[in-house]
């Protein structure tokens, strides 16, 4: 319950960032080095209109965090959706048809699993940026990140969906549908797929938390979203450079925002796993 509440508040706050945030960080007028590196308002030297202080370019931290959080959630959701659609489609086909289809799909998944997800995302992202022409890189950076995380994610979904499909397609209701004479397309869509979604949804929430972390990590490593449209990871990266000079707020607040966000999603996942587990009911 608390998890759902925090998640909803987080998502609402970030979704409505343009209306809530006191400033628009994308407004070039906001960038003024004069107001840069101001501490939070309650610390000596802080100014009341900048509640959480400003970053190195003079942008209001609170606004930037809200916008950054929005970007993080959007990227995470999009990446998970991509991984889920791809993985579930392949997993269900693999589990239902078995044989050669199964062998090929699962071998590819196995091979991909030998290279850990975050590495693969870094790699795909790196390649993606290199392949794109220079002038398009900034604009497409977000899509490259989504693509990289989504593509590195699908084997998890495929494995779970395949496992669930194997179990479901052995069940007698699927055989009953075959005896009735329904075509395979209908059996898969109407009978098998809806029954595999329960475990998939559980890993999707965990996947969402991991995708948000992955995006932040990529951005932190300077591989993800450019500083012009900052995400939480980018903000932390920028802040980290100023950590030793005592400008702790540029790192701390985005970091807290990120951790709270991921924590809420994880809590939601835990709660869902228990709620959807028939044994515990």
């Amino acid at each position: 319950m608390i998890a759902a509440f925090i998640t909803v508040v987080c998502i609402l706050a970030t979704m409505f960032a343009p209306w809530i945030a006191p400033f628009d960080p994308f407004d070039p007028a906001q960038i003024s080095l004069w107001d840069g590196k101001l501490p939070p308002s309650w610390v000596e030297g802080g100014q009341p209109q900048y509640l959480l202080g400003t970053d190195n370019q003079g942008r209001d931290m609170l606004s930037t965090i809200l916008y950054g959080g929005r970007l993080s959630i959007l990227v995470g959701l999009a990446a998970v959706c991509m991984g889920m659609v791809l993985g579930v489609t392949l997993g269900v086909l693999s589990g239902y048809f078995g044989g050669l289809t199964d062998t090929i799909i699962m071998r590819i998944a196995d091979i991909q699993l030998t290279i850990p997800g975050i590495l693969l995302a870094i790699l795909i992202n790196g390649i993606g940026r290199t392949v794109l022409p220079l002038d398009m890189r900034e604009d497409f950076a977000i899509f490259v990140v989504i693509f990289a995380i989504g593509l590195s994610d699908w084997p998890q979904f495929a494995r779970v969906a395949r496992g669930a499909t194997l179990v479901e397609s052995q069940k007698e209701y699927v055989q009953a549908a075959k005896v009735i004479g329904l075509p395979q397309r209908l059996i898969i869509l109407r009978h098998v797929l809806p029954n595999t979604l329960r475990p998939v949804l559980v890993i999707a929430t965990i996947g969402l938390a991991l995708a948000v972390i992955a995006e932040a990590t990529l951005s932190f490593l300077g591989q993800g979203i450019p500083p012009t449209t900052p995400s939480l990871g980018t903000l932390i990266r920028v802040g980290n450079e100023y950590l030793f000079s005592g400008l702790w707020w540029i790192t701390l607040f985005p970091a807290i925002a990120l951790v709270v966000l991921v924590f809420a999603v994880n809590l939601l996942g835990d709660w869902m796993r228990d709620a959807l587990n028939p044994k515990l009911r």
Binding site: K171, E172, Y173, Q175, A176, A177, V179, I180, G181, H191, P194, N195
Partner: peptide, 18 residues
Amino acid sequence: RLNLQMIFQDPYSSLNGR
């Protein structure tokens, strides 16, 4: 084939719960 139908053993798995 339409003339033939089947009833299965396990009453729990033979119906689609959704």
